[in-house]
Amino acid sequence: MTTRPAPAARELWEDLARVPVSFPPQGGVNVVVSAESGLCPPGWVGVVALEGSAIATAPTERVAERLRAALADLPVEAVVDAASLHDALPVARVLGPASLSYVSPQGFRPVAAASDVAHLPGDHPAVRGLERVAGHEDAVEAALDEITSPACVVREHGEVVAAAGYRIWPRRTAHLSVLTAPAARGRGLARTVASAAVAHALAAGLLPQWRARPRASRRVAATLGFEELGAQLSVELAQD
C-alpha cells in the first residue's frame, strides 16, 4: 500500500460525513448539515479535527447555524475539546474526544511476540469470553464484536487473555479493536496482539486506524508506530 495516512484519513472522514464536505486547507472548521452523518450518533453533532483543520456535521440547519457561531472564534484544537464546547454550546452529553492515529507500512514498528499468537474467527466463543472477563465498559470501548477480520489472540491456560482485530471501514480503512483481560494487563500482550492485527491489515493493503480515549491504549499505538493526527468528538445538544 502506498497511500499516505494523512490524506487517506481526511478522505475517510469526509466520506463518513455522507454529504459533500472537505477539511479547510488553511485551518478552520467546515460545518455542514447531515442527518445521516457517520461522525456521530443520529441527531448529534459530530466533529473531527485532523492536522489543524476540522469538519463538523449537524442534524439540522438550525443546529448548524448555532454550531458555526459557537465554533467561529475557537482555535481548531478546541473544537474537539469537550470543555471548550461546553462553554460555547448547551451540551447535554458527550462521547470522546477520541484520538485518531494511523500508520503506514513504512512507519509500522512490529513487536516481537513474547507469546504465541493464534487466529480465531471474530465471533469465536473464546473471544466473547474475554469480553465478559474484561467487563461491559472495556468491551464496548474495544468493540471486538464488530471486527470483520480474524481475531489475533493469546491464550493462557486455555483461555483467551488478549485479542485484537479490525473492522473494514470505507476507503480501505482497518479500524482496530484491542482488548486484554484485567489480570493480564501490564505485560505487553496488547502490543503483541495489536501488532499481529496491524500486520494482517497492512498485508491486505488497508490503512490501519487506531481510535482511542484511554492513555494506555494510545501508548500502545505509539509503540507500534502510529501517528496521532487528530481527534473525534460527538456531542448531543440540550433541547431549548
Rank of each mutant, 00 (worst) to 15 (best):
R109A: 14
R109W: 04
R109G: 05
R109P: 00
P110F: 08
P110Y: 03
A114P: 01
S115E: 11
S115K: 13
S115R: 15
S115P: 00
V117I: 10
H119M: 15
L120R: 13
L120N: 04
P121Q: 08
G122R: 06
G122L: 07
D123Y: 04
H124S: 08
H124D: 13
P125G: 06
R128Q: 14
G129K: 15
G129L: 10
G129T: 08
G129S: 13
L130R: 08
L130N: 02
E131F: 04
E131L: 03
E131I: 06
R132M: 12
R132G: 13
R132T: 11
V133L: 11
V133N: 09
G135P: 01
H136I: 12
D138G: 15
D138C: 09
A139T: 08
V140A: 09
V140D: 14
V140F: 05
E141W: 10
E141N: 09
A142C: 01
A142L: 02
A143E: 09
L144N: 07
L144G: 05
D145S: 09
E146K: 12
I147Y: 03
I147N: 03
A151N: 02
C152T: 14
C152Y: 10
R155W: 02
R155P: 00
G158C: 01
E159I: 09
V161M: 06
A163I: 01
R167N: 15
I168M: 11
I168C: 09
W169K: 13
W169R: 14
P170Q: 06
P170A: 09
P170E: 05
R171C: 08
R171H: 11
R172S: 10
R172K: 10
R172F: 09
H175M: 13
S177D: 07
S177F: 01
